[in-house]
Amino acid sequence: MAFFYYLIFPGFAFAAIVGLLTAWFDRKVTARVQWRKGPPWYQNFADVAKLLIKEVPVPETANKGIFLLAPAVALSASAMAAAMLGAANINWDYTFTGDLLVLWYILALPSIMIILGASASGNPLSSVGASREMNQFVGYELPLVIAMATVVFKVGSVGLGDILRFQAENGPILYSASGIIACIVAILCLQAKLGLVPFDIPEAETELGAGTFMEYSGAALGAFKLTKAILLYTSPIFIITLFWGGIQVKGLGILWAILKYVLFIALFTLIRNTNPRLRIDQAVRFFWVNMTILALIALVLMSLGY
């Protein structure tokens, strides 16, 4: 059962397919915003299929083991996160105490693997990208944890199942002042985790070539693309689970769930299309000052009962 959850539904296969479709949605909306036609729906599948037949040259200066291991670990970690979130949503009892913390660690793994892989590649531009990714990572984790703490203190438990049950009984956390603020903070932090535009500083095509992914090609790059796609699917589910009562897979609940999901994806896409890229110091200041203060306000409001 656990293997089915991990490999097929709601883990790897399901998350990859939905994630690639979502990435297409993102590209299509971007194209429409720029008054273009945009790619067809199977575009991202074609990209990944193509990457699988390309050769994977490893640079002479690279540390071969870490260079090739990093994408694999990142991919399996993201699939694990998708499986855990999905399982918790399908059955509130299919969880264990403290799985929110575990999930948080697992969600951090892809970023760490990107940093490791880029540093192992031996390319100077990649290492600049890796250092930026690291700075940004340190930046957004702090407000994200405080926003999660808001939810945890309100519910009084660090289990995903408990959080979902609490919201089913007392109404979603989003419908309170502290909930809205914490949710906004979480959305912006996840935007940075996904590396979408105002925070795509590590990949910055115009300055760094492809930054952290510079030396990757073929299947290794495909694994990173899939990781990004699965994270793009996981992030909205993560926010919905924490703040908006999760996904009910019964009857009309499915339609409502899809609506919530599309809403969050549209939010990510809109933020990405209406903002220019920040500098790394601006991004870190944004997270450590503005977002952390907002998150603390949410925490205080929550403890006052709002």
Binding site: G38, A46, A210
Partner: peptide, 21 residues
């Protein structure tokens, strides 16, 4: 540019030669 929009055919400009087809 948007006028010709080759992303319709999946053609994208990439920044690293390792990604190039």
């Amino acid at each position: 540019t948007p006028r010709f929009d080759v992303e319709r055919f999946g053609i994208v400009l990439v920044g690293s030669v390792r990604h190039a087809d």
